[in-house]
Every structure is written in structure tokens, then in C-alpha cells.
Amino acid sequence: MRKVHLQIPADAGYIDVVRICLTGIAAKQGFAYEEIEDMKVAVSEACSNAVLHGSGESNAEPVDVTFEPLDTGLTVRVVNYGMSFDHTSARQEASPIQGGSTSDLRVGGLGIYLMEALMDVVRMSSDQGKTEVVLTKYRHA
């Protein structure tokens, strides 16, 4: 199977298109239902971050999503062309939900934790005007 490239507007309403495409490609690759559902959550989070943080106020820049089938799994690249961010600091702040009550919960950081919990490999890079999140899932079934 070949790479599939999808470019969506920086609008949360288009993330469903990415999820549908991912479902079809992952099913064709032989992933189990549970694995596909995990990937959908992780990729949706990466796309949400790209839309929310990467496109600026004008939402003028698109989000590029590339599905790269592997012999043993699938890699999904999500790229936005907005402001860069310090992913190392963001990763250090990422953690599971903690605290005794909802008032103890802080906003942010959970997305990175979810991506890392649900995917086998997560890489992030960011430089002037471009942020890329690379998510890889291997077939375990």
C-alpha cells in the first residue's frame, strides 16, 4: 500500500475526515478494531492541537496529514505551519489525570500523554513555522 496524503483546512470540523481516512487505511492494513480506535483518539488529538495551536487566528494555513503504511504497522504524520512550540517542555508537563477532585485538574498536557499511551512511537519536532507530530502504531494482533 502507498502513502496517502490529506490536506485539511485548519478547522476542527474537518478532523472527522482524517478519522474516516485513518479507519479505512488501518482496516486495510489488518489492524484490530481496538487498535484502530486507539489510533483515532491519538490522531484526533494531534489534529486538534494542529488546528488549535498551529494555524493562528486566521486559520489560513492548512494541516497536512500523511498516512505511511509499513510492513508492520502504520505511521501518521500531522504537520501544521503556524507558530512553533517547545514540545520538550510540553512533554515534561504531560501527565495522567491526577488530583482528588476536578478542581485539582489543570488544563493542557493531557493530549501528549494520550498520544504516548495509545501509540507505540510518538515524535514531535517544531521549528520556525512548522510543527510535526509523527505517530506510529504496530500491529499487535
Rank of each mutant, 00 (worst) to 15 (best):
K137N: 07
M1S: 13
M124Q: 06
K28D: 14
G54N: 06
A27W: 00
A90D: 12
D16P: 05
L114G: 00
F67P: 03
G109F: 06
G24P: 03
V134H: 03
A27D: 03
S126G: 12
F31W: 08
Y138T: 10
V43D: 08
A10P: 02
V63H: 05
S95M: 09
G111W: 04
T88P: 00
Y33G: 09
D104E: 15
A94G: 03
L110W: 06
K40L: 05
H87Y: 15
A60W: 07
K28A: 12
K40Q: 12
G13K: 15
I97T: 07
G54E: 06
V122M: 05
D16L: 15
P69V: 03
D104F: 01
L110P: 01
I15M: 07
V51W: 01
S48E: 13
Q128K: 14
F85W: 14
M83R: 14
H140R: 15
G109M: 09
S58Y: 08
V4F: 09
S126H: 04
Q29C: 10
V122Q: 00
K28G: 10
F31N: 04
L105G: 00
D120P: 01
L6I: 12
R2Y: 08
I25Y: 08
T102G: 02
A27R: 09
V134M: 14
E37N: 13
M119K: 02
E116P: 02
N49K: 05
K28N: 11
Q128T: 13
D120H: 04
G56I: 01
R19W: 04
P9W: 01
M39K: 07
F85M: 14
G109K: 11
V43S: 03
D71I: 09
S44V: 00
P62Q: 07
Y33W: 11
L135S: 04
Y81E: 00
A32E: 12
Y81I: 01
L135Q: 00
L22P: 02
D86S: 13
I36L: 08
V63C: 04
K130M: 13
Y14H: 11
A46N: 00
V17F: 10
A42L: 01
H5Q: 11
G54R: 04
H140F: 02
S125I: 09
R139F: 02
G109A: 03
V121Q: 12
L74E: 02
T136Q: 01
M119T: 08
K130F: 02
E116F: 00
V107S: 02
C47I: 00
F67G: 06
V43N: 05
P62F: 04
S103E: 15
I36V: 15
S55K: 06
P69T: 01
V4L: 12
D71Y: 08
V51M: 05
I25L: 10
M124V: 11
F85P: 02
V63I: 15
A12H: 12
Q7E: 15
M83W: 08
F31L: 08
E45A: 06
M83S: 13
D64C: 08
V65L: 11
